[in-house]
Design a protein around this nucleic acid. Structure first.
Lengths: 142, 142
DNA sequence: CAGCATCCATTCAGATACTG
DNA sequence: CAGTATCTGAATGGATGCTG
């Protein structure tokens, strides 16, 4: 397989932001990682991918998650434009959370993360000296 | 393998590991995030996607990265099966690092992270109430 | 050259207690 | 019900000094 000649990295856009010499918040990769950063974050997103949830429903779906961290994650994800809060008036208070379109687009991202992580158990990666065989991760899932 | 029916969330496999109630190391998503965890990690991978590098070359490409953290990242990535160390005998010592096939497969993952993060600046995500578009961003311009 | 050992500042997660 | 405030322990990142 012929390696690229003038290209930088396969799979990476030819964008000036791809050439940063240190972690900067304006890098798209950093933006996404910042949105997903921290424990529990992806699980909260996964729950929301199933549909709208209230605070309590999320807490029930993830029993080991403290309300403080849940609050943190929800704020973080709202701040990243992943979800929106829908606070309804009256008593008792009921707030539901749902993904934005942008939040839904996290689906493919999580899928990519899943695929890479799932491929490790099956394929060899201990005796990997040669990188010429560039097999795509052909998991049928999804 | 025929598990096409996605009952839970769009984009997530119908795997028992997709139903975990707390962050567990065996979850594929966690595996990938663990491999990419920490500051500088994706930048080190990006450098290596360009080709083989020595320790010093990596340090030069990322000047603000301390050797301690670089060592940490390299160990972490080697542990995740992303790269291999090629230590050559003689003096001065020269160690080069290169991606494994598995490491190269991180390209699409980084691409997915990039795409999502890059889409934020352009599209609306403030007034997002309704989800309709589920377009995969496959801009592979680089 | 390519690291490892040690110390220190900052961040993070979880627990507990309290409120509109 | 849906949070906020405060505290503690653990993990992380970075600086400095030393070695095969």
């Amino acid at each position: 397989m012929a390696h690229q000649t003038v290209r930088y990295a396969p799979g990476l856009p030819d964008d000036s932001r791809a050439a940063v010499a240190e972690p900067t918040p304006s890098c798209p990769v950093e933006i996404t990682l910042a949105a997903l950063r921290g424990r529990w974050t992806t699980l909260v997103v996964r729950e929301l991918l199933k549909g709208e949830h209230t605070f309590t429903q999320l807490a029930q779906a993830l029993p080991a998650l403290s309300d403080k961290v849940l609050t943190d994650r929800l704020a973080q994800l709202a701040d990243s434009g992943v979800l929106v809060r829908d606070r309804r008036p009256g008593w008792p208070p009921r707030t539901s959370y749902r993904l934005t379109p942008r939040g839904h687009r996290l689906g493919p991202v999580l899928q990519a993360l899943w695929d890479w992580g799932a491929a490790g158990g099956d394929t060899d990666w201990g005796a990997a000296e040669n990188d010429s065989g560039r097999g795509a991760a052909e998991d049928d899932s999804g």
